[in-house]
Design a protein around this nucleic acid. Structure first.
Length: 900
RNA sequence: GGGCGCGUAGCUCAGCUGGUUAGAGCGCACGGUUCACAUCCGUGAGGUUCGGAGGUUCGAGUCCUCUCGCGCCAGCCA
């Protein structure tokens, strides 16, 4: 037996890696129905998730832990339900982020820039970098217990996925959904690339509104007052606009005004975009550097002047300011205008500054030739797919957010001036200037046949390839067996923060390119925050690193915390203390398991007679059945957190705290009692481990293995229905069992026993009786006498009563001397504690109790006397009537106790 | 101006389709060396009853309206 001795505490360090490797080795992560394997049955519906691809260079953070835990939970649950499951893992090349990191590293180590190294060499370096960090991040994902099919792992720059990207680009282009042209875009001067609207964040910052004079060109000395937040853009002004009905300025419309410093003459135009109330009511128009102005410029066919170059320095168009940094220029030009007498005033003003999502530098709206995806039509399809229910978003409230975004969608700028990513598959002819857009690299211009062609230097936005993820990972555009069987996928699970970036784009792309929704359900989880609800950030130094956390407390503890501490779509505050509490839970499971295994080993290996279940046996089984019903319902309605909480509660507060305590006695009785107790323990542990496995896969698998080993070695009678599976990870999920009529009665009786025990314990504690000291008790049980007599030993043991003097009676004529008393559930309890009992204080205590009971009686009498009795459903009324009856009896009993 | 979320015990949060003296973890207090577990066990205190005000209802933390506070998303008014 000693060889089977389990350590006193669950040792996750010695468990997690071993089990993970074993699972992989046994092939459990692979779909049980696989088009690549013999016996494949295409008619069985699989459950498929594409993992949100982690950035190759990223360090593991709690966000990863969150989605891995959540998706692994869903996958494991489905797998246990016997559904063929596929979870496709993978990583993302993360264009900007990765390129930046490598650039930084090159600068630090070799002091070279990417330009100095050259494109080809640089990209090579990035691949080397990728290789290294991919190994790290993917092993960290494994560490979380992710049961994905690693043989199907993908990387966004894989050959196959690159083919998909190119196919998508060409198809979009051919359908006219992708176009190239000069547009006002968001330019990141630091990164020297365009970025999409989504990659710009606006932050409110204190700034100034600069008021100045736009002098009329006619030399009259008259001027139009104008205000701006960015004086440097004056250099690019090509008009001054006023409202068409603004009597103040109407007379100037059609005249020319002079651009300060530069002296260029520009027209005064009328446009009702101008808000007469705001600022001076006159607006300077800079089509080259402001989105609104750009549109006005289009309407009025104004000239577009770019005054900023790629690094946000002033262009030659800025005259004397050429070469200056944008912010220096802002100061300088204002000073110069002051000197020139053009300044009116400055006013403190809160700006809405566009900043790069990455790095935070100020983004400049600039005109630039870029590639765009025409979104409006695509968006409509994506909208419909959710509207008509082909895709369901959970929680539902996010559908509104989704609609809102798609209804106001702008074209998507997809070209990036980077080196790391999917090169745009477009070649320009140096001879005829035509474009060749091709699936295969061309060697000549398709229009004129010239060999003087060069490929577009830019790459595609990383999200362009991510948008194809659910099908590109399965082989699309080829109709591979995987694609045919596993696509569309089932659930897309991710944080709500990338609903637009990723989810919406996958839906758009999926519909357009595959003609199908890429998944039927979108499950969105919240953002991870620190214990006080603040966003984690390095600058706040409140980042919780999951790796040391797992080192210290185990993966299961972290997973359980994330899964059970969260509600769909709501942010979760992660507190290390909570993780520690869940580590304790893992340990609790472990130790309950040790107890059960020990019980099995020491119990008879077969029964003599048919089962004669104890009240406790029946109670715990009935409760387990209730649990099964609730947990299954909660799983089906995506309420995983609540399901976990309920299992936790059941396991700890009922199974461990009560049933196991009673089982100790039952096992000690030996014989059939011991056998059936061991059997019950075995069944319950087996069932609970199955229920818990999706949450805490490691401790449950490990313990279950020990359970199985012990049970198999000990007795055939412990084998569950259907036999012992070879591993918990593939053990059948516990489905709800049909209700049986005996359940309610057993639960009621056992609840009575618990009440009595708790009340005695309470009295003991209150009277400061030594916890282990056996004392006398007299229970006056009335109609429940037989139940209590039946369970006397249990009460006696759990409440530490002296078996020689403890008695249960139906009624009592004379109250015991010097006894502490109480009434619970209609049972009168007397603890004759002798001298320590002070009758006065007892009377006070009981009177207080009586008061609360009487107030309840009053409450119920009022309730039942009113409309409630007439209008509420009969069962609800009956329940309250019953309570009233009980309270009245209790009241009566308490009065007696006080009286005598 | 818009959309959404949150505001429940000292702290961090649960609470499904409304059902009737509100739950958990942590913290706190008191007490525990029983052969599963001190990563534990027992007992308890703690919420003016769930931000505030109305309303619907026999009944609301749970639905509706308004309101206050916090947060998020979206928004290109100089």
């Amino acid at each position: 037996m000693s060889k089977n001795e389990l350590p006193k505490a669950y040792d996750f360090k010695n468990t997690e890696k071993r089990l993970y490797d074993w699972w992989v080795e046994r092939g459990y992560f692979k779909p049980s129905n696989d088009p690549g394997q013999p016996g494949f049955d295409p008619s069985i519906k699989p459950f498929v998730i594409s993992i949100p691809p982690a950035n190759v260079t990223g360090e593991l953070h709690l966000g990863h832990a969150m989605y891995v835990s959540m998706e692994d939970l869903m996958i494991r649950y489905q797998r246990m339900k016997g559904v063929p499951t596929l979870w496709v893992p993978g990583t993302d090349h993360a264009g900007i982020a990765t390129q930046l990191q490598v650039e930084k590293d090159l600068m630090r180590t070799e002091e070279v820039t990417r330009e100095e190294l050259g494109r080809e060499k640089f990209v090579e370096r990035v691949w080397t970098w990728k290789k290294k960090y991919h190994a790290i991040i993917s092993s960290q994902i494994r560490r979380l217990g992710a049961s994905c099919d690693w043989d199907r792992e993908r990387f966004t720059l894989d050959e196959g996925l690159s083919v998909a990207v190119r196919e998508a680009f060409v198809r979009f282009y051919e359908k006219g959904l992708i176009y190239r042209g000069p547009r006002l875009i968001n330019w990141s001067p630091g990164l020297k690339t365009a970025v999409s609207d989504l990659e710009v964040e606006y932050s409110e910052e204190p700034g100034k509104l600069y008021y100045f004079k736009y002098m009329l060109a006619d030399g009259s000395g008259e001027f139009i007052p104008v205000a701006t937040t960015r004086p440097e853009t004056i250099l690019g002004d090509t008009a001054v606009a006023v409202h068409p009905e603004d009597t103040r300025y109407l007379k100037y419309v059609g005249k020319q005004v002079k651009v300060p410093i530069l002296g260029r003459e520009i027209p005064v135009i009328a446009d009702d975009y101008v808000d007469r109330e705001f600022g001076t009511g006159a607006l300077k128009i800079t089509p080259g550097h402001d989105p609104n102005d750009y549109q006005i410029g289009q309407r009025h066919k104004l000239q577009v002047i770019s005054v900023l170059d790629a690094i946000a320095h002033i262009t030659p168009a800025g005259g004397p300011y050429e070469g200056m940094d944008r912010f220096d220029c802002r100061k300088k030009i204002w000073e110069d205008m002051k000197k020139a007498g053009l300044v009116i005033k400055e006013q403190a003003y809160t700006l809405n500054v566009p900043r790069s999502q990455r790095g935070g530098e100020v983004i400049e709206p600039m005109v630039s030739t870029q590639w765009f995806v025409r979104m409006s039509e695509l968006a409509e399809d994506a909208l419909k797919a959710v509207q008509d229910g082909r895709i369901r978003i959970i929680p539902e409230r996010f559908t509104k957010v989704y609609y809102n975004w798609l209804e106001n969608i702008q074209d998507w700028c997809i070209s990036r001036q980077l080196w790391w990513g999917h090169r745009i598959p477009v070649w320009y002819c140096d001879d005829c200037n035509e474009m060749t857009v091709a699936r295969q690299d061309p060697t000549a211009c398709t229009k004129c046949g010239s060999r003087n062609i060069h490929q577009d230097p830019d790459v595609l936005d990383t999200w362009f390839s991510s948008g194809l993820w659910p099908f590109s990972t399965l082989g699309w555009p080829d109709e591979t067996p995987d694609y045919q069987y596993f696509y569309p996928t089932s659930v897309l699970e991710t944080g709500y923060d990338i609903l637009f970036f990723w989810v919406a784009r996958m839906i758009v792309d999926g519909l357009e390119l595959t003609g199908k929704v890429p998944f039927h359900t979108v499950y969105l989880h919240g953002i991870i925050r620190d214990e006080f609800g603040d966003k984690m950030s390095k600058s706040k130094d409140n980042v919780i690193d999951p790796l040391p956390l797992m080192d210290e407390l185990g993966t299961d503890a972290l997973r359980f915390t994330l899964l059970v501490g969260s509600t769909p779509g709501n942010d979760i505050n992660v507190d290390v203390k909570r993780v520690a509490a869940n580590r304790n839970f893992a340990n609790k499971i472990w130790n309950a398991g040790r107890f059960v295994i020990n019980a099995i080993n020491n119990a008879p290996d077969k029964p003599e007679k048919a089962a004669l279940w104890s009240l406790a046996d029946s109670w715990i089984w009935a409760r387990y059945k209730q649990l099964l019903g609730e947990v299954n319902h909660l799983f089906e309605t995506w309420q995983f957190g609540e399901a976990g909480r309920q299992i936790y509660e059941f396991f700890w507060s009922e199974l461990a705290d009560w049933y196991i305590e009673i089982a100790k006695q039952q096992l000690a009785e030996g014989g059939d009692r011991a056998f059936y107790t061991a059997q019950t323990l075995s069944r319950l542990l087996d069932g609970c481990l199955r229920l818990l496995h999706p949450f805490t896969p490691f401790v449950t698998e490990e313990l279950w293995g020990h359970l199985k080993t012990a049970a198999v070695a000990h007795s055939d009678h412990l084998t569950p229905k259907g036999g012992w599976p070879e591993a918990l990870i593939i053990a059948p999920w516990p489905e709800p069992l049909p209700f049986e009529t005996w359940e309610e009665g057993k639960i009621a009786h056992f609840t009575l026993i618990m009440e009595v025990v708790k009340t005695i314990r309470n009295l003991r504690a209150e009277k400061k009786v030594q916890p282990g000291k056996p004392i006398t008790a007299i229970l006056v049980a009335g109609l429940n006498t037989s139940v209590l007599l039946d369970q006397a030993v249990i009460i006696q043991n759990l409440a530490h009563l002296d078996p020689k003097t403890f008695q249960v009676v139906e009624k009592m004529t004379e109250k015991p001397e010097n006894a502490v008393s109480m009434v619970t559930s209609g049972i009168e309890i007397y603890l004759p504690l002798g001298d320590i009992v002070d009758s006065d204080s007892e009377r006070v205590r009981l009177t207080r109790e009586l008061q609360t009971i009487d107030s309840q009686i009053k409450r119920l009498e009022t309730l039942l006397g009113g409309d409630f009795a007439k209008k509420a459903p009969p069962q609800v009324v009956e329940k309250e009537r019953q309570k009233l009856v009980e309270y009245r009896a209790t009241s009566e009993q308490l009065r007696n106790q006080i009286k005598s």
